[in-house]
Amino acid sequence: MKTILVVDDEEDIRESVKLILESRGYNVEMAENGDDCLKKILSAKPDLILLDIMMPGLPVDEVVKQITDINIAFMSVVRISEARKRGLCTQDNIVDFIQKPFDVGDLIGRVELILGE
């Protein structure tokens, strides 16, 4: 069973994503900020991280710099062009950008594609 780490400062979003992905048979772990995310990676060993761009605490670019061997998909209300402007989409392990508010089917489709199912 593949594990997905959902990182978002909003509990409702974390819970919603967890519900959706668990219904497709994934194991879902949650983190509420960057520091939390880095800690959870060690214990949960996720196959994919869904990472919000705007969170309090450790800046996202600092977070992604420390993750080199796990695929990351950004989730954000800002547009991909804005994220690119902030220099966020340069790493090879950043594989997707999910625009919020997302479509449930679209989210599932993207996750399945990334995890190769």
Binding site: E10, E15, L19, V77, P101, V104, G105
Partner: peptide
């Protein structure tokens, strides 16, 4: 506008799941 859009994400997700018979 950004603040207004944030709550839309879980709201739409839950609504779609309800509608989709989850």
């Amino acid at each position: 506008s950004h603040e207004l859009r944030s709550p839309m994400t879980p709201m739409k997700a839950q609504l779609q799941m309800l509608e989709g018979g989850y």
